[in-house]
Amino acid sequence: MGKFSRCGDQIAKGKKSAFRYHSTLAKKAQNVPYQILQELFSRLVERLGRGARRALLKPYKLFAVDSTTITFQHPDMSWAGYTRTRHAIRLHTKFDVEEGQPTQVVSTTGRDHDVMVAPKLYNDLESLSIITGDRGYARTSDFQDLHERNQFFVIRVAKFFSLSDEMEHSIPLESGGKVKVDQTAFIGKGSRKTKSRFRLVTFTDNEGNEIRVATNLMMMSLEDIAYIYKLRWQIELFFRWLKGNLDLSNLFGNSPNAVYSQVYGTLISYFLLRWV
């Protein structure tokens, strides 16, 4: 019993020490401009993005866009309003699927919706890039803008999206039965209606759920379009890894400097682990 008692005392001391460590770090981080870590992260992205690329979807470069929300409860977090009882920040991310790493992170409070931040993630795209995203990134004005800039996209749209002048096309037998609809149409209505026709492909996932995506890849096979959207899952795995392995879901500070310093410090740690 003496051994177990001593072990229990050591564990309790360890917990108190960890709490003091986090508390001290949070106080120090309040006075450190997080922009320093943000700039360091940007330089690491530039440095590590020069590596050799795998031939995933030659000649295209594939990026996934999505965001993750980190919520917390603290009386001194009014700057990060989210709901009446909780506060949150959101990390809007552009993710290089081939390299397996983020190339851009825009940090905002939890109330900033994906579709409002999306244009920032669409800037500085390489030629022959494809952007893939979920329904939070489906906005007809962005579809038209990307198309006019000769950038490609595969973005999921909700069933309630209005279509006009639909033209349905036959589906090749080699699609394996998973592709249900292949059509072109104008998307939206009124002032939000696109000026160009876009392709809409409906297919089923592994669980039989129907997914409809909009794209301007008019000549690409149906199987490749479905495959591109499925690769979007890689950014979800990245967010899970950050929160689970690097403990980003637990924020130890309450000021903007402390919170965003932890965020960009964690992102830097991710890059260094990949580099090593």
Results as ranks from 00 to 15, higher is better:
Asp9Pro: 00
Gln10Asp: 14
Ala12Asp: 09
Lys15Phe: 13
Lys16Thr: 10
His22Gly: 04
Ser23Met: 13
Thr24Gly: 02
Lys27Asn: 14
Ile36Pro: 01
Leu40Gln: 14
Ser42Gln: 15
Arg43Val: 02
Gly51Asp: 09
Lys58Cys: 08
Phe63Leu: 03
Ser67Gly: 02
Ser67Cys: 12
Ser67Met: 04
Thr68Asn: 00
Thr71Gln: 01
Thr71Leu: 03
Phe72His: 07
Pro75Cys: 09
Ala80Val: 05
Gly81Pro: 11
His87Ala: 04
His87Ile: 01
His87Cys: 01
Ile89Val: 01
Lys94Pro: 08
Gly100Ser: 02
Val106Pro: 11
Asp112Asn: 14
Asp112Lys: 11
Met116Leu: 11
Asn123Trp: 01
Ala138His: 10
Phe143Val: 10
Ser162Thr: 15
Leu163Tyr: 03
Met167Leu: 07
Ile171His: 04
Val179Thr: 08
Val181Tyr: 02
Asp182Ile: 10
Ile187Gly: 10
Ser191Thr: 07
Thr194Trp: 09
Ser196Ile: 02
Leu200Glu: 13
Thr204Gly: 06
Met218Gln: 07
Glu223Gln: 14
Asp224Met: 05
Ile225Phe: 04
Gln234Arg: 13
Ile235Gly: 11
Trp241Asn: 12
Leu242Pro: 00
Gly244Ser: 13
Leu246Arg: 02
Asn254Ser: 14
Asn257Pro: 10
Val259Asn: 01
Leu273Val: 15
